[in-house]
Design a protein around this nucleic acid. Structure first.
Lengths: 145, 145
DNA sequence: GCGCATTTTGAGAATGATTCCCATTTAGGT
DNA sequence: ACCTAAATGGGAATCATTCTCAAAATGCGC
């Protein structure tokens, strides 16, 4: 885990009147190393014994502080990743067979085209766009027969 | 509800060895008129007394038959819309305050650029892309102060 | 039209991810 | 070190969703 990530996470928790405790720091480290959204069970497994209630509570705290983002894919499990401004802008490959989620990035030309479109939406609909979310759904390499 | 939609829904249910019952037809009609994804509660309200268990069961049947698609947004409620090949290809505006979901469409140039990108993903990652899903998240007109 | 076999329905129970509760532990400031 | 406020963790509670099963509806052959 990079020092800046650690410092940024600490600062955001402080702004939210929350402490950057050992297990919160550990969760941030686990998500940083994963490079893909993790389920609660995966976070617990990687942590070696973090209680379920602490995992849920601390991920909720980190989410409210803007350190972590909740990702809903297709299965019944919520997944968590670092907030995008702490990593890189990216999108998700969602497997419709097993539910797994992988990260991927697109060309900046396409990203900019999306941004331009997003800016036109407000005038047309009254909806104020804050972010975009692009998932490609399909079958991951593991599930391909 | 258009006659073709009705016929297509009937055909898909038949292919799935399911009947196109009155309440299933009613649900299809409700979703067709809504023009946006509806929660179970909204479907029930529009139907005038459809029991919850029937709403869940019939939406699940319609989903398996490929007539209806389940949409996960940001709140805890699943929403349902007609399958895309029964309507038009579109995307969603997801309000982060109230959870509501609206439809919108993008230029075909941008859609084609997305498709081209999707086709490169398989070579790079081994993931076979079947569809894409683009949501713009933000604040809807109703929730804007 | 009539009964039979099969499917659908609906009310409530069961499930399971997530959230809440609260007594105990931990940590920060003085 | 002390004291106060916050965090922890085990388990209970919540709630959207799914399952169960007896009753009702439907389609089909005669």
């Amino acid at each position: 885990m990079t020092t800046e990530l650690d410092a940024t996470a600490a600062a955001r928790l402080r702004d939210a009147d929350q402490r950057y405790t050992t297990s919160r720091r550990q969760i941030v480290g686990i998500l940083a190393e994963a490079g893909r959204p993790l389920t609660i069970a995966e976070v617990q497994a990687a942590s070696g014994g973090l209680p379920q209630s602490s995992a849920y509570r601390n991920l909720a705290v980190l989410e409210q502080a803007g350190v972590v983002r909740r990702v809903l894919a297709t299965d019944e499990f919520a997944r968590f990743e670092l907030a995008e401004d702490l990593t890189e802008h990216h999108h998700h490959l969602v497997c419709t067979r097993c539910g797994s989620v992988l990260d991927f990035t697109m060309s900046s030309a396409l990203e900019e085209a999306l941004e331009r479109t997003a800016r036109t939406v407000r005038a047309r609909t009254g909806f104020t766009v804050q972010a975009h979310r692009l998932d490609l759904t399909g079958v991951c390499a593991d599930c391909a027969d």
